[in-house]
Design a protein around this nucleic acid. Structure first.
Length: 276
DNA sequence: TGTCAGGTTTCGG
DNA sequence: CCGAAACCTGAC
């Protein structure tokens, strides 16, 4: 395996925290499944060992996916100085990062997330990959790749209902059609991208923002779920009657280019305060 | 056994 | 534009 020397990368909270649904910790390593590969990351002091399969040593994939090229420490420093809430959050979760995930897998996974817990989404995604994703063995462990849109297009809504998608099965089927018809995104403008995503049935404000942040690199956006809203009302005394977009604008106005990262920190932080 | 979930759509006002 | 009910299913 290759070694990556890096401080301040919290693999656990970043890979398993709800940005992504395709990672499992097995034995001593995190394993993630994608449409064309399995990635292994084994945490160590001062960094981690890693490998990609079947194509080995794909450092470009790793750099991009884990967002290793961003100036993380500079962002943290700027954030920490803002106020006591974000400062506490940054201190509690050192090394929390934002991933850079592949578009289709992210969109399809987050369509399944509506009114489901992280655990529930992870389950649904595994039902999908185990039923329709190619099996691949790594270190004598059996994994399934994330199935391609082309493969999934052959299936019907009823097939997806069998996987436990519930009312999301229809959205999922429709999304596959859209993805295959539309191809890659043709624009980068924030409002245009969001408008496009929301034109999918089953994607509203929150899921659109998740896709924008976790796969399209919008660092000035954060998804507002119940916890993100609670951050605003409880910490920052923002009027709870504000609309979704007004709340998002509040975040953007306050955290600017670091909105995505701030949103993740505050999300994890306020959840931890409400757990115990 | 019942409630509820990190949300979206649909319908009524 | 805004609030409320309905939606599948599994987890607590």
């Amino acid at each position: 395996m290759n070694f990556m020397k890096i401080e301040n990368y919290n693999l656990e909270i970043t890979l398993l925290g709800g940005q992504a649904f395709n990672w499992d910790f097995i034995n001593d390593s995190y394993y993630g499944f994608f449409k064309d590969r399995i990635v292994q990351i084994k945490p160590e002091l001062n960094g981690f060992y890693w490998q990609t399969y079947p194509k080995k040593n794909d450092i470009e994939f790793l750099n991009h996916y884990l967002n290793l090229k961003t100036n993380y420490l500079a962002k943290l420093k700027k954030l920490g100085g803002k106020d006591k809430y974000i400062k506490s959050a940054v201190q509690r979760y050192p090394g929390l990062r934002i991933l850079n995930q592949e578009f289709e897998q992210t969109l399809l996974s987050f369509i399944l997330s509506s009114n489901k817990s992280v655990k529930g989404v992870r389950k649904a995604v595994r039902n999908l990959t185990q039923a329709y994703g190619e099996e691949i063995s790594v270190n004598n462990i059996s994994f399934h790749l994330f199935p391609s849109v082309k493969e999934l297009l052959k299936l019907q809504e009823s097939d997806f209902r069998k996987l436990g998608f519930g009312f999301r099965a229809k959205y999922f089927k429709e999304a596959l059609n859209r993805l295959s018809e539309d191809g890659a995104l043709k624009f980068r403008d924030e409002d245009a991208v969001r408008k496009y995503l929301i034109s999918f049935i089953g994607i509203g404000d929150k899921v659109a923002d998740c896709i924008m942040v976790f796969s399209l690199g919008f660092q000035n956006v954060t998804p507002l779920d119940v916890w993100g809203k609670k951050v605003l009302t409880d910490f920052y005394k923002v009027n709870p009657k504000l609309s979704y977009s007004e709340m998002r604008k509040w975040y953007q106005n306050y955290f600017g280019e670091n909105t995505a990262l701030a949103g993740q920190f505050l999300f994890e932080y306020i959840r931890s305060l409400n757990k115990s």
